[in-house]
Nucleic acid binder design. Structure first.
Ligand SMILES: [Mn+2]
Ligand SMILES: [Mn+2]
Ligand SMILES: [Mn+2]
Ligand SMILES: [Mn+2]
Lengths: 217, 217
DNA sequence: AATAATTTTTAGTTTTGTCTAAATTTATTT
DNA sequence: AAATAAATTTAGACAAAACTAAAAATTATT
């Protein structure tokens, strides 16, 4: 598999998690920052290699082979992120782009040794699960903070968006994985929230709340 | 710089260390396992980018810019090799091919952090010097075992060839960096050597001796 | 100095992955 | 059920990096 094929497979995998039907051309093009026509070309090649099932105009779905390949790329991405944060002291907002490169290093042995070196972590720095060598991963029940009712106490478990700007926003407000938050107000007009954290009240927008995964505690 | 450009620059650098004149097309083609015509194409591109000086039929030399770029690739290659051996328990014969991939990961910050994490090693697992972030590296006086006179005692400091088959040969005969060796016979006919190591006599060919760097002790 | 051998460059293809523009199919409105 | 809009595919082009085969330049040999 080439660098580019791996990126497509990974994007199709991520899109599949949200909508389990056929993944359409434009959605892939949007994620990969290319054009629909380029996606059509690549999708044909992936179908040739039996990594996806594809019928014209009907979108694609991963085959078993494609699904496994995707999980192995995600495994590499997330293990490298853990390495960068745990061993090289990178911050959680710095690691994604580096992992985008490192995930393409082709060696099962390397990634399995790295896994071991890191102590077989179950989650990456953004709270996302790390597939094991067979593709198995834990499934933690989480919901978006924006969907939790008033007066509930929650713990922060992950982020939906792991862009530097969002992560830096969280850092600025001292919100990290494990933080405990109580929702004390929901503004009907814009769905912004007032939350209580470490005895301090913070106002956060609905967009922020819609990118934070939490569980009620 | 693309993956391929980096490989060319690195090869030109390695050839420059042996012969400091213009590096010729065929030599590059041989190292990179491509054809002379491909080399000509690439060399023109590198000249465009001012990484090499190039005149038709006269070979290439690295510019200052090209030399620095080459050293940074070598730095990455060797630091990743140290990482694989020291932290992930790879053997010295396994790491070269992996480092060939890892050396292309583009991040100064990553490689400087890795350097620090490894304790700023001065040499890689094959005894080759690791350039620091400015391109500086130690120069250890070494010579090939094949060039050392009879009855001399030497210490093994590095390998010229780091192919798995040669390294595995050394492992089999328990020769590693730091091993102390005494030359007790040189066969005039084929220049093979009888050496004394840990009280044991071993016969090694001239080809083996011509790939082992040592210093007289 | 002329010829032969070797090396290097040029010219023309190929493959991979991308693009734009046009054509086609599917979905949505009237 | 048409008509319109949106999504998708096709056709044709391009850049990067490789190749083969032929031409040109350099080097070695008679
Ligand atoms: Mn990431
Ligand atoms: Mn992540
Ligand atoms: Mn190496
Ligand atoms: Mn090495």
């Amino acid at each position: 598999m080439t660098y580019s094929e791996e990126n497509y497979i990974k994007v199709i995998y991520h899109l599949s998690l949200v909508s389990p039907k056929g993944i359409n051309t434009n959605a892939i093009a949007g994620m990969i920052e290319s054009k629909a026509s380029s996606v059509t070309d690549m999708v044909k090649k992936l179908a040739e290699k039996e990594l996806v099932d594809y019928q014209k105009y009907q979108g694609v779905t991963l085959t078993q082979k494609g699904l496994h390949a995707a999980k192995m790329i995600v495994r590499k991405h997330r293990l490298w992120e853990v390495f960068l944060v745990e061993k090289l002291d990178f911050t959680w907002d710095e690691v994604h782009d580096l992992a985008e490169e490192l995930e393409h290093i082709k060696s099962e042995k390397l990634i399995n040794r790295l896994d071991e070196f890191l102590g077989f972590p179950k989650e990456d720095p953004h709270g996302d699960p790390i597939p094991d060598r067979y593709g198995q991963m834990i499934k933690v029940e989480k919901q978006l903070l924006s969907e939790v009712g008033l007066n509930k106490k929650v713990m922060c478990l992950g982020v939906k968006d792991s862009s530097p700007s969002f992560l830096q926003y969280l850092d600025k407000h001292q919100i990290s994985l494990g933080s405990e938050i109580e929702i004390i107000n929901k503004e009907a007009f814009d769905m912004s929230l007032t939350i209580l954290m470490n005895g301090k009240e913070i106002l956060i927008s609905n967009k922020i709340a819609g990118n934070l995964f939490v569980k009620v505690i």
